[in-house]
């Protein structure tokens, strides 16, 4: 199944080859093998979204994705949102506008919002709610998250 020498895919813009059990959870592969522990395990069964990563630009729960499924595809984790020390605007907005508290859900929420904003740069509340329906946050009541997204929009409140 694996082919000799492991499974190749693109991780945060770099080609990687991983020689592990092809049924390994993508979450464990990125956290432990690739030493990118930003993605979190909140439930291990696809309910909370803390482990969300982008697979070919679509958010997926990496706890439910076996390694074999990412062969030849593109994976982006939270570690890839910041470029050259500059935060993605949505990261900046979360820090400024109360989108982050304990931080455990934050990586999954930000990566999911990045995918939303890439296809819809000015989402309304309903669209944000639809996009984040699979990401649980227990700290903010989601209002700070909605405010953070709104702060990005034209005419958005920066404070």
């Amino acid at each position: 199944m694996t082919g000799k020498g492991g499974i190749s895919f693109s991780l945060n813009g770099k080609a990687v080859k991983v020689d592990l059990d092809p049924m390994s959870r993508l979450l464990d592969v990125v956290r432990e093998h690739c030493e990118l522990p930003g993605s979190k395990e909140g439930c291990g069964e696809g309910e909370c979204g803390a482990c969300a990563v982008l697979l070919d630009d679509e958010p997926v729960c990496s706890c439910l994705v076996p390694l074999i499924q990412v062969r030849g595809r593109t994976v982006r984790t939270i570690e890839d949102l910041e470029t050259g020390g500059v935060l993605d605007p949505i990261q900046e907005a979360f820090v400024e506008a109360g989108g982050v508290q304990c931080g455990a859900c934050t990586p999954g929420i930000l990566i999911t919002l990045r995918a939303l904003l890439d296809r819809n740069p000015a989402p309304n509340r309903t669209e944000v709610r639809e996009a984040l329906g699979g990401n649980l946050c227990r700290c903010t009541g989601y209002e700070g998250i909605l405010r953070s997204v709104e702060a990005l929009l034209p005419g958005g409140d920066e404070s």
């Binding site: 979190k40 570690e79 820090v95």
Partner: peptide, 21 residues
Amino acid sequence: QSRPRIDGRDKVTGAARYVDD
């Protein structure tokens, strides 16, 4: 005043280290 959180940057970049990390 509502300044940006001290730990905000580490938490939004995935750099914050929790016990399982």
